[in-house]
């Protein structure tokens, strides 16, 4: 009896060892599955994405240089461009900031010649320079220029030193002074980071025009400055255009007529 009992105990313990071994194997398989599954899903997603959206996968190309030509002689309410920009990028949702602390990607500047009395208005945004001082001075490389000439801030890399704001000759950049809520998916904005016009890069990558261009009733022409057959290149060739502070030789991508 005792032996039997002991045998039973042994059998039981063997069974429990067996069971725990089985549990271990099943558990390991489950853990491995959990660990691998997301990678598989990610791979499949990436693979599907690469098949479906080839252009996005290729990334920005240095063969193009996106630019704008602003015709300031046209009778346009430039504030519509500002409104379109704010709507597209989800700006103007600051609750605590003073007026001089609020973000503006694009603004309407009134210019008057003191001597002649001639006055005009023009929209000014990031000029997407070929030689951007903001990119030169950024200590971490958060300020960057895409191969297609669009100047951007990597919000994950920006440490909020504001040196780029000191360096920009166009005052095109803003600093986020407070915690923001309800941000647009296309434009993540964070307290303590610098931001500026990104030429609606998300729209461009989808083959659309920037929001301000769309709202300008044809007064802003958007296109590829590198392509001699693009509308913008033809207009610039025919009528010319000026850059703000061209003397600094930064070669901005934003050109103006009538300034």
């Amino acid at each position: 009896m005792t032996i039997n009992f002991e045998n039973k105990k042994q059998q039981n313990s063997e069974a429990s060892v067996e069971s725990s071994r089985r549990n271990f194997i099943v558990g390991s398989a489950a853990v491995a599955g959990i660990a691998i599954a997301p990678s598989v899903v990610l791979y499949q997603t990436a693979h599907a994405d690469s098949l479906q959206n080839v252009s996005a996968k290729e990334g920005a190309s240095s063969k193009v240089r996106w630019g704008m030509l602003v015709d300031t002689t046209k009778d346009v309410d430039w504030n519509k461009c500002v409104e379109a920009c704010n709507k597209e990028q989800g700006l103007g949702n600051e609750e605590e900031s003073r007026d001089d602390q609020r973000t503006q990607y694009i603004r309407v500047v009134d210019v008057k010649n003191k001597g002649t009395g001639y006055s005009m208005s023009l929209p000014v945004m990031c000029q997407h320079c070929e030689q951007p001082p903001c990119v030169d001075v950024c200590p971490t490389g958060a300020s960057m220029k895409r191969p297609d000439g669009i100047v951007l801030v990597d919000r994950h890399r920006c440490i909020g030193c504001r040196y780029c704001m000191m360096a920009c000759p166009y005052k095109a950049r803003s600093f986020v002074h407070e915690v923001l809520h309800d941000q647009k998916e296309v434009t993540p904005r964070g307290k303590g980071c610098v931001e500026s016009c990104n030429m609606c890069v998300g729209r461009i990558d989808k083959g659309q025009e920037p929001a301000c261009v769309e709202a300008s009733s044809g007064a802003i022409v958007f296109g590829d400055l590198n392509d001699p057959d693009s509308a913008i290149s033809k207009l610039l060739k025919e009528h010319g255009g000026k850059q703000i502070r061209a003397d600094l030789k930064l070669n901005p991508a934003i050109h103006y007529q009538g300034i």
Binding site: V108, V109, D110, V111, K112, N113, V124, K171
Partner: peptide
């Protein structure tokens, strides 16, 4: 930004 000109904006 516009040397010699009077400039204003928001």
């Amino acid at each position: 930004m516009f040397p010699g000109m009077e400039v204003s904006s928001s």
